[in-house]
Design a protein around this nucleic acid. Structure first.
Lengths: 233, 233
DNA sequence: CGTTGGTTTGATGGAGATCAAGCCTCGTGG
DNA sequence: CCACGAGGCTTGATCTCCATCAAACCAACG
């Protein structure tokens, strides 16, 4: 984990109009800027460890994170993905509940927990913006619950691909025609409550049925988005 | 749905020190009181319907709610349970995403969306309290995701019973020794991604193994909480 | 007393977990 | 430059667990 002491470059920030801090005016944002610092993570590096005390808060600028936990047998279960402009950090918990790990090379704004909370108290607009983000996260969580409640493996994998296509798209209403999966097969399996083999088989099946085409291990091209959606049930 | 015009009885409210409004001082709470009204729901009655415009916000005083959606085949999928002091309502969404239904006779404080938001803007402490609640809901969501990610039906049912025992307990650290399931078998199945029959079979199995005892269709007595936890993996 | 909604139990088949190889890609070092 | 190894991915064979279909049970209630 590389920490940069130099000031955050809010002016050039690619998520400046979508992240929670976008609710602030220039003066307020400068104040927030002064307590944060930029952090770079490479794929696989851990930001927070479950059980860690007083975790910080952070906004993801680019890349992707996963929030996960390990069960007794040591298999990873992915609870959430974090996309750029997303917020991580449990402001009200004394210890972190889950692991947070980069699944792609990432850049983020990191804020010490105590100082961040003080800023939240002084700037109500920030509190409200965080509430909005939290509501969105909650909604995303419920979408994942919905996905995992599906009973067949095909429905789950199809629904997952659909969700990834939507997330990868620049326009919010249309799915991306072509994108790279940010997760390994094992991570997908851990997210969907399946095994690696089953995920792999469903992907080959979708390719045989010409719903998708695979380009290497990670690349996905959507041949028939409507059919994909139908299969997701 | 019975709506009462008479003022909310905050002074006598059983959740007055746990709900979001507990963050307010007396004057502020009176103001909130003036825009809300008490609503009584019987089991099965719907508070919000998915797709409904401008849903209100509400705090649950007693009883229990479920947040659910219907998939294409018409099977219900439960996304969340709401316990007393819990908050429902999507302040930032123009339309409701999910159905909200009483699963027990319930009493709640209902606030019109627009007026509630105005109050939130004026009282930053309320915004922060809602943020805390939202974080807790998010955490609960992730626990459910964790539960549903388990691969065997026994683990899911055991984990669910454990969660219900914890929720039913007055003390936060010890599970209740005896409680009633708030859900039908069908609702449990919808929550765990299983079928009614499988849920039923796992319960009989747990009873045969003397981990639990059943008292009628809904009553559960915990014989061996440690074993239950172990089975939940 | 019959009906209805929820629950339990049984029998069967199929979907997915598990076990086991083999393959592809990339990075490292000889 | 090629060999090698390590991860990650795919494919196959088998077996287990759960969904499905079907029927009976039970309690509450009109």
């Amino acid at each position: 984990m590389v920490t940069m002491r130099n000031p955050l470059a809010c002016e050039a920030c690619p998520v400046r109009d979508r992240a929670a801090c976008s609710a602030l005016d220039d003066n307020q944002r400068h104040e927030l800027e002064s307590i944060g610092r930029t952090v770079r993570l490479k794929r696989g590096e851990v930001l927070f460890h479950a059980g860690e005390e007083a975790p910080a808060s952070a906004t993801l600028i680019s890349g992707a994170l996963k929030i996960s936990s390990l069960d007794a047998e040591g298999t990873e279960r992915i609870l959430s993905l974090v996309h750029p402009a997303g917020f991580v950090g449990e402001m009200f918990a004394p210890v972190a509940h889950h692991d947070v790990t980069a699944i792609a090379d990432s850049i983020l704004c990191l804020f010490p927990a105590d100082r961040y909370e003080k800023v939240v108290d002084r700037f109500p607009r920030l509190a409200k913006a965080l509430l909005r983000r939290s509501s969105e996260d909650l909604f995303a969580s419920r979408e994942l619950i919905d996905l995992m409640g599906r009973r067949t493996a095909l429905q789950r994998v199809a629904g997952f691909l659909k969700a990834m296509a939507d997330a990868a798209s620049s326009s919010p209403c249309h799915p991306a025609q072509r994108f790279d999966l940010p997760l390994t097969r094992g991570e997908m399996a851990g997210m969907l409550g399946l095994t690696i083999e089953t995920v792999s088989r469903q992907l080959t099946r979708l390719e045989k049925d010409a719903v998708i085409a695979r380009e290497g291990a990670r690349g996905i091209r959507l041949n028939d988005a409507a059919q994909l959606e139908a299969l997701a049930a």
